[in-house]
Design a protein around this nucleic acid. Structure first.
Length: 612
RNA sequence: GCCCCUGUAGCUCAAUGGACAGAGCACCAGCCUUCUAAGCUGUUGGUUCCGAGUUCGAAUCUCGGCGGGGGCGCCA
């Protein structure tokens, strides 16, 4: 589909032709099927296309096909329609091929129109009309007292990109994060810190955060049963575990000492987390802390019992549950039964998520709620959404779990318990190191004081693109060389297209704010046509990525656009154009390409540097 | 037992039920005196896991297998 809001001229042509097709069909006793228009899938040719297979199939089904095979009949109709259409304003030529009707645009008008639209809209080129709907994206839910690893980077990048996309597409967007700042894992670290490291504190935000992870790994080793352990070892382990449980009890009872210990170490983790969000250019609107939703969440359980949705089995020694399948009248087990409160009255993950969902709807007035959480929790979220439905929230149907596969290592799953993790900060540092090495040999024209900053942009661009260009529900086996590759289908490839465009404009001293009127009254090369077509696709790519909640769609688009630009760059001289009009036109096209590349990179949370 | 995800080129991955299943990496052959070679051009590479079905048309939808991963009342 072509963008009808940004480029109404395309829509006009389409509608004119559709009307004529119906006219022809009515006159010849043909019942036309619904016409679907798609871009012509041949590189260097710019137009829109529809087919008559469905129409021919309908005829055959109605017994009117006089035994002509469907593809052949579709081609007949296409040819006849083509004959009936004759010339159409704005169309260079029409052809009937293999049952398809291909409508080629006359390029000069549209090239100018597209380029001017981009240059005048600038950062807003491709922005959708306001949709009058509020959407909350919840992502980046790290546990505190651990360090931020490369798996957290995936959800953060996925969520941030999605938030940017839906916001740009026209939704009122709220970014939310939900750090897990309490739980047995957190207490384990508190216990070990207090017992073995009290008073110590490494310098540096990231060093301090990573140190907590190291403590966790050590503590886990002390608390896990070993094979062939001696009675002494067993006794010691059980004593440690008792200390840990006692500490959890004290935390619950608001013991001042434990609470202060918790508060201080928690802040160390949050310092690191905030710094990483800053590095990734992420600004959260709402922070939900697990420790803060814990108490209030218990109230909703009572409400669900009162309304007959939940059943209280505590008198019989059981927990509070919701028999979802039964409530929905399902005979086969699908959503099963969800436990929403422990027998001892303490809350569960489910308790808190139900309370959070309610809060999102009632306090933040969200119409849609997206959860960017790993795929292992898909049943959990299906259950939560179904309970919201039973609860009577119409927004339940617009809750969506954007699940993603794990980032694993070649040697298996990451495991904080075993200390087998790839930390984001280490990858980040390595990325910068590698980019600087490339820069020193290839980029002589970057001022010394900008090298570091640009290296960060390129390094993160490589990492972000490697995460976003894979379908979210696939696992990623993390490979440093692959994630930080700068060649081929990568972030730096797209960034480089932006740099090259900038380089031309800079040399020509082109001012996008005050362009010379561009006229494309010459025969465009196929590279120019392809580039213009890719640019014109951007608004639709935004809408598609937003509607499907799939940043990958934008990642794919950005590459296609950069690819078209690189080919254009190589084949078409700009500064050395034959005459002044052509030079101006091409400069405008380069400026439009640069802007569109920058806009699409922004939606992927990737910077667009001017030099690299 | 039930549910979810997944299987496409040597590898990593794309492909609103439509034109010849496409990219990148790797391999091979070219292209820097010309707007940045982090690039471009070309070559090689396929029983889309298997089998049925629906359809004019299936990688895509349905059913049945096989392989891989995950989940299933008091972990998060």
């Amino acid at each position: 589909m072509l963008p009808d809001i940004i480029f109404p001229m395309f829509k006009d042509i389409q509608q004119t032709i559709e009307a004529k097709i119906r006219e022809y069909c009515a006159a010849h006793d043909i019942a036309p099927a619904e016409l679907k228009w798609t871009p012509i899938p041949f590189s260097g040719e710019w137009g829109t296309s529809t087919s008559f297979f469905q129409t021919a199939a309908n005829e055959a089904r109605a017994g009117k096909g006089n035994k002509v095979p469907v593809p052949q009949r579709a081609q007949e109709i296409a040819e006849q329609v083509k004959g009936h259409l004759g010339g159409v304003e704005g169309v260079s030529h029409i052809e009937a091929v293999k049952g398809y009707l291909n409508v080629y645009f006359r390029t000069s008008d549209y090239a100018r129109r597209v380029v001017e639209e981009v240059i005048s809209s600038k950062k807003d080129f491709g922005r959708g009309e306001p949709k009058d709907e509020r959407i909350m994206v919840e992502y980046a839910q790290p546990n505190t007292h651990h360090s931020f690893h490369i798996g957290h980077a995936r959800t953060t990048l996925l969520g941030e990109s999605l938030a940017r996309i839906v916001e740009f597409a026209g939704f009122d967007t709220i970014r939310a994060t939900y750090p897990g700042d309490i739980g047995l894992g957190v207490i384990t670290i508190l216990w070990a810190y207090d017992k073995f490291y009290k008073g110590q504190e490494p310098d540096g935000i990231h060093e301090r955060g990573q140190w907590l992870l190291k403590i966790y790994t050590e503590a886990t080793a002390l608390l896990e049963p070993k094979e062939n352990e001696t009675p002494e070892e067993k006794a010691r382990r059980e004593a440690y575990d008792a200390e840990r449980r006692e500490m959890y009890r004290k935390w619950d009872a608001h013991d001042p000492y434990v609470r202060e210990l918790w508060r201080v170490t928690r802040e160390w983790s949050l310092d690191e987390f905030r710094d990483i969000l800053r590095m990734l250019d992420v600004t959260m609107d709402v922070w939900f802390y697990e420790s803060e939703v814990d108490e209030p969440s218990k109230a909703i359980v009572e409400e669900l019992i009162q309304r007959g949705i939940a059943e209280d089995e505590r008198p019989q020694g059981g927990p509070v549950i919701v028999k979802i399948d039964e409530k929905l009248g399902l005979t086969k087990e699908k959503y099963r039964t969800m436990v929403i409160l422990r027998n001892d009255g303490t809350s569960l993950y489910s308790t808190k998520d139900l309370a959070l969902a309610k809060q999102k709807i009632e306090q933040y007035h969200v119409d849609r709620s997206i959860y960017v959480v790993d795929f292992r929790q898909s049943l959990h979220f299906q259950q939560v959404f179904k309970i919201l439905e039973l609860w009577g929230f119409p927004q339940a149907s617009k809750c969506y779990h954007l699940s993603y596969g794990y980032v694993t290592l070649p040697e298996g799953a990451m495991s904080a318990r075993r200390g087998r993790v790839v930390l984001f900060k280490n990858v980040y540092d390595e990325a910068i190191k590698r980019v600087l090495a490339v820069e020193s040999e290839r980029s002589g024209n970057i001022p010394e004081n900008q090298r570091e900053a640009i290296a960060k942009q390129i390094g993160l661009g490589a990492l972000a693109y490697s995460m976003l260009s894979v379908d979210n529900n696939k696992d990623i086996v993390f490979d440093m060389d692959e994630a930080l590759s700068f060649d081929g289908r990568t972030g730096p490839y797209i960034q480089n297209a932006h740099v090259r465009a900038n380089s031309i404009l800079k040399k020509a001293n082109f001012q996008p704010s005050n362009p010379q009127p561009a006229t494309f009254d010459y025969e465009l090369t196929k590279h120019e046509i392809e580039l213009i077509e890719q640019i014109s696709r951007f608004p639709d790519a935004v809408q598609q990525a937003a509607n499907e909640y799939r940043p990958m769609v934008m990642a794919q688009y950005a590459y296609d656009l950069a690819d078209a630009f690189h080919s254009f760059y190589h084949a078409v001289p700009v500064l050395q154009s034959e005459d002044e009009d052509m030079r101006n036109a091409r400069l405008s096209l380069v400026a439009a390409a640069k802007q569109t590349i920058a806009n699409s990179l922004r939606l992927l949370d990737i910077q667009a540097p001017d030099v690299m």
